[in-house]
Design a protein around this nucleic acid. Structure first.
Length: 463
RNA sequence: GGUCGGAUGGCCGAGAGGCGAGGCUCAGGACUGCAAAUCCUGCUACACGGGUUCAAAUCCCGUUCCGACCUCCA
């Protein structure tokens, strides 16, 4: 364990094993969640473009994740399950609700150009795996059954607890942010539940060797990652907020069960702010990918904005950046089409060199801003032939995933606009420029931008 | 209170002892009937106070301010 940047190694020499903490499917994933999910895609693409195999897993948390910000003002941690709470609010069966948000999650990541992982195991379908893991931890003395029939992990039993997050057990006592409500069945304040007794709860509960109940959040990821990645994780990904307690606890569980350091690398994506503030329901600034699409932007513009910022820096998103990225994307696609028509030069060595100059900062530290900077420099460089530019852009897009070779298809034109365009074309022929300018303004109100070129007018729908 | 990050031009943001990142906005120019797009040019900054050095945005000491995490979260 160290906090330094280290070279990533494929431990079995075959495929890089990566585990990403996935969504809790009780609501739509906002763009901040998506930024972290994108990080998994960028790593996967980089590994694959570099010629290595990838084995990646992302879990779906559909049970056991406790409520956080559904209540205002913030109170002590609630003993309610996020999925159950939301299901009650929407008057739906919890599993139906979870599956519908899971489907939305898949739709969103697809629109962001995130390629599917190998497997998306669901927590609710991994209960047996958790039983086995919990039993193992009880047998080895790392976990105990409390008086309330819940099973707890004993934080003190794991020697290096805190190594990941930098927390020390004795300093965790204060619970500075809220009055810690003592949980009678725990033997130590920092212990956490692996299995929770059902109590009054009737939905999403399972019969276990310790009684009826449901799994704790942290054990889910340990169970699924150990099972699907054969007890070793080369790279474990998640949002920075998961570093503690989620990943700290996960590490303790997994390591204690396997007597090994299960995860080689922990990579944490930094948080995204929107218009200067953390996205939250109470602040009313939660941005969904759907909002962006509704506003007329290409979802891949968001992908570009994210890549223009470092994954481990906090970033502040705003509409201006989205709009700028949307414009850049359009320009690149249009230039790519032009460049592709240019004469072919035999300069494969230059192409390879330019491509390498882009991948170099990516391999060093997934430095997407620097890589994009080089790409922009190539775009502008008059000494590089157009066809070479096309080849470079096409090649590096396997990593960037911006659909550079997409031919923009004209959007549906409102009927009213069609007529205005015809009239305007006529007015221009007659050199009635006052009339044509007036029509251009009218079209702009309909979100149609008219462009006059050497071969006549053309138009596009603007966001 | 503990731990960890920051502070750079109108705005966003890299960089990490000498060689002016880049983007956005804005202004000027080319092109255009005019716009738009595109291209060219311009705006030249490193929180504050000390210190080290031939040379500091960068290193050291101190100060101020901001943010994150501290058993909710991507």
């Amino acid at each position: 364990m160290s906090r330094a940047q280290r070279e990533i190694v494929i431990s079995d020499g075959k495929a890089l094993r990566m585990y990403c903490c996935g969504p809790t499917v009780y609501r739509d994933a906002h763009v901040g969640n998506l930024r972290t999910f994108l990080l998994g895609d960028l790593i996967s693409r980089l590994v694959q473009v570099s010629g290595f195999s990838m084995h990646n897993v992302q879990n779906i948390t559909d049970v056991g994740h406790m409520v956080d910000d559904l209540h205002e003002p913030r109170e002590a941690p609630s003993e309610e399950d996020k999925v159950l709470t939301q299901a009650a609010m929407e008057h739906k069966d919890p599993f139906t609700l979870a599956r519908s948000y899971e489907a939305k999650f898949h739709k969103d990541i697809a629109r962001l150009g995130i390629r599917s992982f190998d497997i998306y195991p669901r927590a609710s379908e991994s209960i047996e795996l958790m039983f086995a893991l919990i039993q193992k931890l009880i047998d080895s003395g790392h976990a105990y059954v409390g008086e309330d029939e819940s099973v707890y992990f004993s934080a003190n039993s794991f020697e290096s607890y805190g190594a990941l997050s930098g927390n020390k057990l004795e300093e965790l006592v204060p619970g500075h942010r809220y009055e810690y409500v003592g949980d009678g069945a725990k033997r130590f304040h920092a212990d956490w539940a692996l299995w929770k007794a059902a109590g009054e709860r009737t939905e999403m509960v399972w019969e276990s060797p310790w009684g009826r109940g449901f799994p704790g959040w942290h054990i889910e990821c340990s169970a699924m990652s150990l099972h699907y990645l054969q007890s070793h994780v080369d790279l474990h990904l998640g949002g920075i907020d998961l570093r503690f307690p989620h990943h700290e606890n996960e590490r303790a569980q997994s390591n204690a069960a396997t007597l090994s350091e299960v995860t080689d690398h922990w990579v944490h994506g930094e948080h995204l702010l929107f218009e200067g503030r953390k996205m939250s329901k109470s602040a009313g600034n939660v941005l969904l990918l759907e909002d962006l699409v509704q506003a007329g932007y290409d979802p891949l513009a968001l992908r570009l904005v994210f890549m223009e910022n470092r994954y481990r820096s906090q970033m502040d998103l705003n509409w201006e950046q989205i709009s700028a990225a949307h414009g850049t994307l359009q320009r690149w696609r249009s230039k790519y089409q032009e460049w592709s028509k240019a004469e072919l030069h035999n300069d494969q060595a230059i192409v390879a060199e330019l491509i390498e100059s882009i991948f170099e900062p990516l391999r060093a530290d997934l430095d997407t801003p620097k890589a994009l900077l080089k790409l922009r420099a190539i775009e502008r460089d008059a000494n590089i032939s157009d066809r070479t530019k096309a080849q470079v852009f096409e090649s590096v897009d396997k990593f960037f995933g911006l659909d550079i070779n997409r031919v923009e298809v004209a959007k549906e034109l409102p009927a009213a606009a069609e007529e205005l365009l015809t009239t305007r074309e006529q007015a221009r022929k007659e050199r009635d420029f006052a009339r044509s300018d007036q029509l251009r303004d009218q079209l702009l109100e309909l979100k149609i931008k008219v462009i006059d070129g050497p071969s006549g007018q053309s138009w596009e729908v603007i966001p």
